[in-house]
Computed example of a mutant assay.
Amino acid sequence: MVEYAERFFRLVEAGDIEAVSALYHDDVAVWHNYDDVEQSKEENLATLGSIADRYDRFAYAEPRHVAIEGGFLRQHVIEVERGGKSAAIPAILRVYVEDGKIRRIEEYFDRGKLDALFAS
């Protein structure tokens, strides 16, 4: 499961949306604590696919994975740069994996630092 988690996030960071899509169930739900919204597969893939357009640099730092029943936990620091400004945002995700594909993601992070980056 840890290898699966590492592969998934490598694909996200590389912008390989087609490969990410193949790891999702068709009815995957991706929920975020900061807006309490569940994204569909298509919505989430669009969000991930637009990362390169929204940031000058995007990376995951300090990744940590823990296999748990039914999936894994992922902790990392999202590092972004845009217009000469940067932010480092700690995050944790609970990822539910069923039949070898991701069924649900619950992502938790403080959006304040990201909002500050976009405000200017």
Score class of each variant (00 low, 15 high):
residue 30 V to I: 13
residue 118 F to H: 13
residue 1 M to T: 04
residue 44 N to S: 12
residue 48 L to V: 04
residue 70 G to E: 11
residue 20 V to N: 05
residue 70 G to R: 09
residue 38 E to D: 13
residue 95 V to A: 02
residue 65 H to S: 10
residue 97 V to T: 03
residue 31 W to Q: 01
residue 115 D to Q: 11
residue 34 Y to G: 02
residue 102 I to V: 08
residue 39 Q to T: 12
residue 68 I to P: 02
residue 71 G to K: 05
residue 50 S to N: 06
residue 30 V to T: 14
residue 36 D to G: 15
residue 69 E to L: 12
residue 73 L to H: 03
residue 46 A to V: 03
residue 23 L to N: 00
residue 98 E to Q: 13
residue 66 V to K: 09
residue 20 V to E: 09
residue 117 L to K: 00
residue 27 D to Q: 11
residue 84 G to N: 01
residue 47 T to W: 14
residue 106 E to C: 15
residue 52 A to P: 07
residue 96 Y to W: 07
residue 37 V to G: 11
residue 29 A to T: 07
residue 27 D to I: 14
residue 119 A to I: 08
residue 47 T to N: 13
residue 40 S to C: 02
residue 101 K to L: 06
residue 116 A to M: 07
residue 55 Y to Q: 01
residue 115 D to W: 11
residue 23 L to F: 02
residue 82 R to S: 11
residue 39 Q to R: 13
residue 102 I to A: 03
residue 12 V to P: 06
residue 68 I to A: 09
residue 62 E to Q: 04
residue 38 E to H: 04
residue 83 G to W: 00
residue 47 T to L: 15
residue 59 A to Y: 05
residue 79 E to G: 13
residue 71 G to W: 01
residue 89 I to K: 06
residue 75 Q to Y: 15
residue 111 R to M: 03
residue 114 L to P: 01
residue 77 V to A: 13
residue 107 E to T: 00
residue 77 V to T: 12
residue 95 V to S: 01
residue 80 V to N: 00
residue 77 V to L: 15
residue 87 A to H: 00
residue 15 G to F: 00
residue 120 S to A: 12
residue 25 H to A: 15
residue 35 D to F: 01
residue 81 E to L: 14
residue 32 H to P: 03
residue 4 Y to S: 07
residue 100 G to T: 06
residue 95 V to C: 03
residue 37 V to T: 14
residue 7 R to L: 15
residue 113 K to Y: 06
residue 5 A to L: 10
residue 34 Y to P: 03
residue 70 G to L: 14
residue 38 E to L: 08
residue 102 I to Q: 06
residue 94 R to M: 04
residue 114 L to A: 03
residue 2 V to T: 11
residue 48 L to K: 07
residue 82 R to F: 03
residue 83 G to I: 01
residue 87 A to E: 00
residue 100 G to M: 07
residue 67 A to G: 08
residue 118 F to L: 06
residue 96 Y to C: 14
residue 74 R to H: 08
residue 31 W to E: 01
residue 95 V to M: 03
residue 86 S to L: 09
residue 63 P to R: 08
residue 34 Y to Q: 09
residue 86 S to N: 06
residue 44 N to K: 07
residue 46 A to I: 01
residue 10 R to Q: 12
residue 60 Y to I: 07
residue 76 H to Y: 15
residue 57 R to F: 14
residue 17 I to G: 13
residue 81 E to Q: 08
residue 110 D to M: 11
residue 117 L to G: 00
residue 64 R to H: 10
residue 68 I to N: 05
residue 90 P to V: 07
residue 56 D to E: 06
residue 78 I to K: 12
residue 49 G to R: 11
residue 79 E to K: 09
residue 59 A to T: 09
residue 98 E to S: 15
residue 103 R to M: 10
residue 110 D to Q: 07
